[in-house]
C-alpha cells in the first residue's frame, strides 16, 4: 500500500481495458473508489459498466491496473478476489431458490470457515447471519425458500450475502431495476446504513434514484469515462447531456 493509506480501503483502477476480439468494451478507464461513499456508475446501455465490473471481479480478462490492498485484481481468479473482500451482484438475481433465506446467507458466510468445519451440519444460525437478516429486513422470512421472495427481496438477499461474506467493496449491478419506488427507497436507506465502512458501487439507470442517494457519480460511454463528479456537476455537464440525448432533459431537471 502507498503511504497515503490511512486505514481506509480504496480500489484504484488505471488504464483498464477489456478487449473482445478487437472490440474494446472498456477502453482505458481510470477510477478511484473510496470507502464510505455511494459511488454511482451510470451510462447508456452498452457503455461497458457491467464489463468493467466483470473485469474487476475476475469474470473477464482485462489489461491495465486494478489494485486493492496491494493486490493486482486483474491477475486473480474470481474466488480469490471474493476472498480479498470484493463482492458483486448480478443483473439478474442469483440466489439459491430451493434454499431458505438463512441457508443462502449461511452458505455465503462460509468462505471464512475452516474447510473441515464444513463437514458438520449447521446447528444454529451464526451471529453474522442473524445481523444480516435484520439489516436487510428479511428476518420474518428467514425460514422461507428464497424462491418465493419478491424480486426486490431477492436483491436484498443478495446484498445480505455480500454483507455476511464481509465484502469491503460491493458492486451492485442494476440492483433497483424493476423495483417499486417504495422498494427503491428502502434499498437506498439500506445502502446508506451499510456504506460507512465499505465501498459501494451502484450501477443504475434511474436518475431519480441517483439524485437521491449518490455521493459521487461516474458516467461511462462507449467504454470510457465521460465525466465524474457530484450529482450537480454531472447534471450540469453538457457532454453528459449530449450522451443522454433523449433523457438529457431528465438529467438536467433539478431534483
Amino acid at each position: 500500500m502507498t503511504a497515503s493509506f490511512r486505514g481506509e480501503d480504496y480500489l484504484e483502477v488505471g488504464g483498464l481495458t477489456v478487449d473482445f476480439d478487437g472490440f474494446k468494451a472498456v477502453d482505458g478507464v481510470d477510477l478511484t473508489l473510496l470507502q464510505g461513499r455511494l459511488h454511482f456508475l451510470i451510462g447508456p446501455n452498452g457503455a461497458g459498466k457491467t464489463t468493467l465490473v466483470d473485469a474487476l471481479t475476475g469474470l473477464v480478462n482485462g489489461t491495465g491496473r486494478a489494485s486493492f490492498r496491494g493486490h493486482d485484481l486483474l491477475g486473480m481468479k474470481a474466488h480469490e478476489i471474493v476472498r480479498l473482500g470484493i463482492g458483486r451482484t448480478f443483473q439478474t438475481a442469483t440466489v439459491f431458490d430451493q434454499l431458505s433465506v438463512v441457508q443462502n446467507l449461511d452458505i455465503a458466510a462460509g468462505l471464512h470457515r475452516k474447510a473441515w468445519t464444513r463437514m458438520r451440519a449447521r446447528r444454529r444460525v451464526p451471529e453474522v447471519v442473524e445481523e444480516a437478516l435484520e439489516t436487510i429486513g428479511l428476518a420474518a422470512l428467514a425460514e422461507r425458500p428464497a424462491g418465493i421472495l419478491a424480486h426486490g427481496q431477492k436483491q436484498w438477499l443478495e446484498v445480505g450475502m455480500l454483507l455476511v461474506q464481509d465484502a469491503k467493496v460491493m458492486f451492485l449491478d442494476e440492483t433497483v431495476a424493476g423495483m417499486s419506488s417504495e422498494e427503491r427507497e428502502q434499498t437506498g436507506a439500506l445502502l446508506q446504513r451499510i456504506v460507512a465502512d465499505r465501498t459501494i458501487v451502484v450501477i443504475e439507470h434511474d436518475m431519480e434514484f441517483m439524485r437521491s442517494y449518490a455521493d459521487i457519480v461516474t458516467v461511462m460511454h462507449g467504454g470510457t469515462v465521460l465525466a465524474e463528479g457530484s450529482v450537480a456537476e454531472i447534471q450540469a455537464d453538457p457532454q453528459v447531456q449530449e450522451v443522454y440525448l433523449g433523457t438529457a432533459t431528465e438529467v438536467s431537471v433539478d431534483a
Partner: peptide, 27 residues
Amino acid sequence: QFNRSRYGELLVATRDAEERVRFLGYD
C-alpha cells in the same frame, strides 16, 4: 453426514450453479 453438512449444501450448490458459488468465494 456429507449430505447434511454445510459441505453437502455447497456441493449441491456447485452442481446447480458453479459460477455463483465461485462468487461466494469458493473454488
